[in-house]
Nucleic acid binder design. Structure first.
Lengths: 334, 334
DNA sequence: GTGAAAGCGCTAACAG
DNA sequence: CTGTTAGCGCTTTCAC
């Protein structure tokens, strides 16, 4: 049987109230009594039960974090940012993954609420649950902040990047290197791809050089699939369009897929082809040549989300706020 | 104020016991009553408090998992394996990171115990805390399993790889390709590097070709640092020892560092130099050429750990067990 | 300073 | 079938 406060009290010949007082240090306790209690606690290896404490104190010592997956370095960086902030606080983090599944997303959040979390950070909230106003309803009673997506709900705070500007920076960079035939690599079904495509179209139209066939969609997939699919598509694209000299890829994984395609096709980077990725995941620095990319500053995304959530909790969920982070170009070797 | 079972009971004009019964479905309730209760629960968006339930039921619905970091794909794969197993169970996973810090490791585990976890999986437990018997003491009262390290304690189950054999397979492969001058790349201060080095020495001595200078230690670092450091060291090594034609690296990050060194030095892989890594992290398949490596099957490491922990919990922590997974060679392009 | 007792949200006898 | 009640481990009045 686990040791409880009653066991400690008995062993010390004091009441449980006294033991509680020395643990919490919120009421005066005679020095000798205190020492005795502390000694017994140590001897018995007593650990106060957080569940019981939270219950009676009507407080919570947990923050819920929901991410699509932890196999993606983008998300783990965000998590690191969140953890870093809450490190010094009273809160611990309860992490859940949804595998990009909307039903799992709901059941994870339910679970968090059952566990009485003080608030929830949702990284990349799913489209469907946003559309159905699911999050809005929840957010009325539990503090919630979105990462990587803006919310119109007045109950939800959010942190995200100015991806429109990021895309503009990327393409401008390619343009400044005198590339005119720039291809655009994206994936399925995501708001952030749509934004970037819009910018791409605009900018290509501005120089009167928009070509529908330069837009490639590699569909959906996890990390390694993305790289391989992008490589395949890249091989098709580049072998049938020899005039392409620049590539803007919506994320670094896609960009790396294109790099691999170039190796297969013996296209020299950056001599024959320039590539700009997006995200600046660690991987972008591991490959050779090192990838030029747009930094999303995932860590800071996480930190800011943590700050916002903390504010919301302290304000009793009364105010919401949005933070938009600007992106910057990381010039490397591609 | 959060709504409780009492609120539901009042709204239904029944006792809390009845509400509890419909929630748990463990005692008969009249159909109409049940429906009414269910309706009100839905209306009020009532969610039972897990903390209170666990408290009274003297059970736990949480498994603790301790990892050094989530920025390393090795660990996230192990976590995925663990999650996959517990997915279908009553348990949720509480994840903690230690940043390779032994004090944090202790405080994380304490926190888990305070949160009344049913058991703890420790991935890559720290040397110091193993040496000081810290884990052994804890494991007497809470079910514990190690991943990636064997424990002599009769209270701790463990899952790990047969790295000795893995190293042998890697080096044999290189030998079978007629490489005689094989270099060995390792990092600081880890049991698993030591094992592999021992095997390397033996096998090189067997062919009368052991050379101390072919052993390179790149020290300690996180993922991107490992790659870069290995590249630097690789450049030194390979430019001063042109006769080296094979490399066995203790992990894939190091192997990729060496690959990058080759690109800088214009050494062709695998024509001029063959490289075998270790782990088979996803990254090894993302680079070009794709890395030949030893698969550690991290996912399965996690799954097996989950099975062992579950067994321990069900057996009241009475038995311990070790599982050793065999490694296999993944032949790719290096 | 310290103890007795109430109660956090919930479940499980027990009684009816 | 359903309500009453005790109590999980803890904190916090309220007395003394």
């Amino acid at each position: 049987m686990k040791i409880t406060i009653v066991d400690v009290a008995k062993a010390c010949n004091v009441s449980v109230a006294t033991v509680s007082r020395v643990i919490n240090g919120n009421y005066p306790v005679k020095k000798e009594t205190k020492e005795k209690v502390l000694k017994i606690i140590e001897e018995l290896q007593y650990k106060p039960n957080t569940q019981a404490r939270d219950l009676i104190k009507k407080q919570s010592s947990t923050i819920g974090v929901v991410v699509p997956s932890i196999s993606n370095m983008f998300f783990t960086n965000v998590i690191n940012g969140i953890e870093n902030y809450f490190e010094k606080s009273q809160y611990s983090i309860f992490l859940c993954t949804t595998e990009h599944n909307k039903d799992k997303e709901i059941s994870r959040i339910n679970e968090l609420i059952c566990r009485n979390v003080a608030g929830i950070i949702v990284v990349d909230p799913g489209r469907d649950n946003v559309k159905s106003k699911y999050f809005e309803k929840i957010a009325e009673s539990v503090p919630m902040v979105f990462v990587n997506r803006h919310s119109e709900s007045s109950y939800i705070s959010s942190v995200f990047n100015d991806q429109e500007n990021g895309a503009r920076i990327a393409i401008n960079y390619l343009l400044s290197k005198n590339h005119k035939n720039i291809a655009f690599i994206r994936g399925d079904n995501s708001y952030s791809y749509d934004i970037k495509e819009k910018v791409y179209k605009e900018m290509m139209n501005d120089i009167n050089n928009f070509k529908e066939e330069f837009i490639v969609n590699m569909g959906h997939g996890n990390s390694i699939q993305t790289v391989n699919k992008s490589m395949e598509e890249g091989i098709k694209l580049l072998s049938s369009n020899k005039n392409i000299t620049g590539i803007f890829a919506c994320n670094d994984l896609m960009a790396i897929g294109i790099m691999n395609a170039c190796k297969k096709l013996n296209i020299k980077i950056p001599t024959d082809l320039s590539i700009v990725g997006y995200d600046n995941i660690e991987l972008s620095e591991m490959v050779e040549p090192k990838l030029t990319t747009i930094d999303q500053n995932m860590f800071s995304l996480g930190e800011n989300a943590a700050v916002l959530l903390n504010e919301k909790i302290e304000n009793n969920n009364e105010y919401s706020k949005s933070i938009v982070l600007s992106n910057r170009l990381i010039k490397r070797e591609t």
